[in-house]
């Protein structure tokens, strides 16, 4: 960010604008291109193997035959548990940490550093930890529940820190305005803070869901390796990412099936992200109608004018 001495000359600023626009666009698009490189390689290797039976039937021959139906069920169950466990805790903890009166207290500082440390714990350690705590100490055994809770612990820091920042960056004026109007903490949170932060909270959610779907090592030791359809949350169930890993690393001749499974995983991410997260952003925009919508529309049009 070169701090250029201010030159408000209109044409100059336009030229800078245009150059910056090009740079930023190129950066953004090259990310998508890189994504394309990685994902397209996977899609090309795997897409041909996907058909309806692949999505609905059980694996045979260690995954080289059959489909991945039961694993989709396990994956969604583990994901649901992880999100149900982590989302409320992350959001409430974020609300707590974002409170302005308390930010510099030692407790908040320690909690925040703790979360960063937690974010750096390797997933294999989470797996062994989850195995010791949930599977053994709490007696859940290898189960969907243990896997989901382990994942919940794992994505907690990502969701909390992102959500905290989202809440903390809201303008102070709103809080002051709410105080002047005699609006209580809960109503303020419910009516103003959360809706306004909804799009950013959507990013937090996307991070959590993404990490959950992609996780392998933490689940290998907790939700486990069993390929059946789980009949209860206390059954072991293999998730798609564990299956991808196993096929790619331990099953000779499993590479194409691994790619196919990875394609389904990516598709699942697109589906969940496109519905849950995107609708969250829309809900947020809708509920905060009086404040947010106009402002953002204004901003968009105003900035748009200048190009």
């Amino acid at each position: 960010m070169a701090e250029r001495r201010s030159n408000f000359g209109r044409s100059n600023s336009r030229r800078v604008d245009r150059v910056a626009g090009v740079i930023v666009s190129v950066a953004a698009l090259s990310i998508v291109a890189l994504l394309g490189w990685v994902v397209v390689a996977t899609l090309r290797a795997g897409l041909g193997e996907i058909d309806l039976p692949f999505l609905t039937t059980a694996p045979t021959r260690a995954g080289r035959g059959g489909g991945i139906g039961p694993l989709i069920v396990s994956t969604l169950l583990v994901l649901a548990i992880a999100m149900l466990a982590a989302t409320p805790i992350a959001l409430l903890a974020a609300i707590r940490l974002a409170e302005r009166s308390r930010q510099d207290r030692p407790g908040a500082v320690v909690a925040r550093s703790g979360l960063i440390v937690l974010a750096a714990v390797p997933s294999i350690v989470f797996g062994l930890f989850g195995n010791a705590l949930f599977c053994q100490a709490l007696g859940m055994g290898y189960s969907i529940l243990a896997g989901g809770l382990t994942l919940g612990c794992m994505i907690l820091p990502f969701m909390t820190v992102t959500a905290e920042r989202a809440l903390r960056d809201l303008p102070d004026d709103w809080r002051l305005g709410a105080a002047a109007l005699g609006i209580g903490r809960l109503s303020y949170l419910w009516r103003i803070e959360l809706p306004a932060a909804a799009p950013a909270l959507g990013s937090a959610l996307a991070l959590g869901i993404g990490r959950s779907l992609a996780e392998t090592a933490a689940l290998l030791f907790t939700s486990g390796y069993v390929m059946r359809v789980p009949t209860s949350l206390f059954d072991s169930g293999r998730t798609l990412s564990v299956h991808v890993y196993d096929l790619a690393m331990n099953v000779p001749g499993g590479a194409s099936r691994a790619s196919a499974t990875a394609c389904v995983l990516i598709g699942l991410m697109v589906l969940i992200d496109g519905t849950v997260v995107a609708s969250l952003a829309r809900i947020g925009a809708g509920r905060s109608a009086p404040i947010r919508r106009d402002a953002s529309r204004d901003r968009a049009s105003r900035i748009g004018d200048r190009s």
């Binding site: 990685v38 990490r211 779907l213 991808v244 990875a262 697109v270 992200d273």
Partner: peptide
């Protein structure tokens, strides 16, 4: 673009690893 980034966030490590190793 947001969806594309989210996909990248949800791509398993192994896929990145395979790509890194093979490509």
């Amino acid at each position: 673009h947001r969806r594309a980034i989210a996909i990248l966030a949800g791509t398993p490590s192994v896929v990145f690893g395979q790509w890194g190793l093979v490509v």
